[in-house]
């Protein structure tokens, strides 16, 4: 699993395409990979998870209840969108991804395919 967001894909990405890179934690154990992503301000129905070929895309739109006519005077979250992509490696089973989303934290569990489960290999001393 590698992060493909480090280099912008194309320089002519439109302004609407601009998005913030959400911070993530990725933990791997014998059964698979768990990914946690911080997506504060994204309601459940504005979160989109997408796997195409071996690329996992997390896309979320920020919705805040701002009163009418509000002017921002200080901004640290300057774009209303998060996006991040990861390349999944072959042994991960993208069809069995489980997701939960609570308080702006996305938890993804990507199990390893059956054939990729660890097996102990006997080392023979000759």
């Amino acid at each position: 699993m590698s992060d493909t967001n480090q280099a912008p894909k194309s320089a002519d990405a439109t302004r609407e395409d601009a998005a913030l890179l959400p911070p993530v934690d990725v933990v791997e154990d014998a059964g698979g990979i768990t990914l946690y992503a911080d997506l504060p301000g994204v309601p459940k129905d504005r979160l989109s998870l997408h796997v195409e070929a071996d690329v996992l895309t997390i896309d979320g739109e920020v919705v805040l209840d701002a009163p009418e006519g509000m002017e921002l005077t200080h901004t640290e979250v300057g774009l209303p969108r998060y996006r991040r992509q990861f390349t999944l490696s072959k042994e991960l089973d993208a069809g069995k991804v489980k997701a939960s989303f609570e308080h702006g934290v996305l938890t993804l569990r990507i199990p390893k395919a059956e054939h990729a489960q660890p097996r102990r290999i006997e080392v023979q001393v000759v």
Partner: peptide
């Protein structure tokens, strides 16, 4: 200047609105 949680601050003539982006609490 930036830390956790990230802050946006805005205002209207009637109120001051503070948004703290503090996920997972």
């Amino acid at each position: 200047r930036r830390g956790y949680p990230a802050l946006n601050v805005g205002g209207t003539p009637n109120a001051v609105e503070i948004y703290a982006f503090a996920p997972g609490l």
